[in-house]
Amino acid sequence: MAYDVLIVDDSPAMRSFIGRVLGLTGMEIGERLEAGHGREALEILGRSWVDVILTDINMPVMNGEEFLEQVAARGDLKTVPVVVVSTDSTGTRVERMMSLGAKGYVKKPFSPESLREELERVLEVSHG
């Protein structure tokens, strides 16, 4: 099954970078949706099917924390895992994201392998 992915980051170049690394993971990727901030992401989530979300933390309009809160508040999105993608490597911000319901975390820059590992973990892909 191909996974539909939503990439949330305010940097368009970063979105294409992430998209490219996604392509290099060897995973089967279906739709690749993009949003520049949390609010835009919520709009997309309202109208498109998404299997997994990759989100930045620092963004204008609606940042990653608020976005996670909103996602958590919506029952229909409970099954959509969120992976935090950020340059803030350690400490409180990531911890806070996890406590808000993020399922995984990768630090920018990341290799296709580490992204795949994290995605497979949160998507509970079984290696049969």
């Binding site: 368009p12 294409s16 290099l24």
Partner: peptide, 25 residues
């Protein structure tokens, strides 16, 4: 965690489209 991950030759930097995105932004 991180220390173990070995670096691979960078495929992204070989892509003129991505480099161009980077320059513009």
């Amino acid at each position: 965690g991180d220390a173990a991950v070995a670096r691979k030759p960078n495929e992204l930097a070989q892509d003129p489209g991505l480099v161009n995105d980077f320059i513009l932004e």
